[in-house]
Amino acid sequence: MTDARQRLFELLFERSFLYRPEGFRLASGKISPYYLDCKKTTLCAKALPLIGKLMWEEVKKFLPDAVGGLTLGADPLVTAVCFQAGLEGTPLEGFIVRKEAKGHGTQNYIEGAVKEGMKTVILEDVVTTGGSSLKAVTKAKDAGLEVLAVVALVDREEGGFEAIKAQGLQLISLYKIKEFLDRLAG
């Protein structure tokens, strides 16, 4: 594990990984004894440069014009990746997918300066079933964007990889839930 990858893992484990035997209700409706509240890490000054660096390393392999994802989890990820791309002098647009269309003004689902035909990568904090990622994929495609892949911080390994693959896309995650569970047991 690289130094940056290890440091980000430590931050995620210490700040975002929660465990309780009685469980947590997930967005999918399932009950799980562990939960990743990634915003406690992704909104932290120590983590953002690491997130930008590590996610951009994966994203740039696809040569996208833009990165985006479903608000609220993807907001800091999009910012961190665009910032890192900017540091390297690579043009990259960021966008956010609203959960509901804006109720006034443009009434868009997509916020950002993206245009039809742009190649994009969807960013996600945690993938469980893939539902949130695929909602972002659908809205991006509806806006005329070409979605190339999904890049996530953590894959909970509960069907998301398969659901995203079934849509003809790759899911690349920086970490798998097994790494967190191994550390917990460790």
Rank of each mutant, 00 (worst) to 15 (best):
E93T: 04
A45E: 14
K176Y: 02
D65E: 13
F83N: 11
L123S: 02
P91G: 04
T129E: 11
P91H: 06
A163G: 09
T128Q: 07
A66W: 00
E22Q: 15
Q84P: 05
K99N: 12
F24E: 05
F24Q: 07
K99F: 06
F180Y: 08
A45H: 12
G29P: 06
K46I: 01
L92Q: 05
T79L: 14
V59W: 01
G159T: 11
P33I: 07
F24C: 09
A166E: 14
A136K: 03
L26H: 06
F13G: 02
T42R: 02
L48I: 13
G160L: 04
L12V: 13
D65R: 05
K178D: 15
E22I: 04
K139F: 11
E146R: 15
A143Q: 09
I164P: 00
A85P: 04
K176D: 08
M118A: 04
T106Q: 13
D65A: 06
L123Y: 04
L26D: 09
R25D: 10
A166V: 11
Y109W: 15
K141Q: 15
V78W: 02
H104K: 12
E58P: 00
E10P: 00
Q167M: 12
C38N: 15
L48N: 06
E100W: 03
D142C: 05
E179G: 09
A85H: 05
K61D: 07
T41Q: 10
R20L: 10
M1A: 14
G160S: 10
S173K: 02
E111L: 12
G144L: 07
L123F: 09
F9S: 00
F9Y: 02
E158L: 08
M55Y: 06
G186R: 14
L26V: 07
G159W: 10
G23C: 11
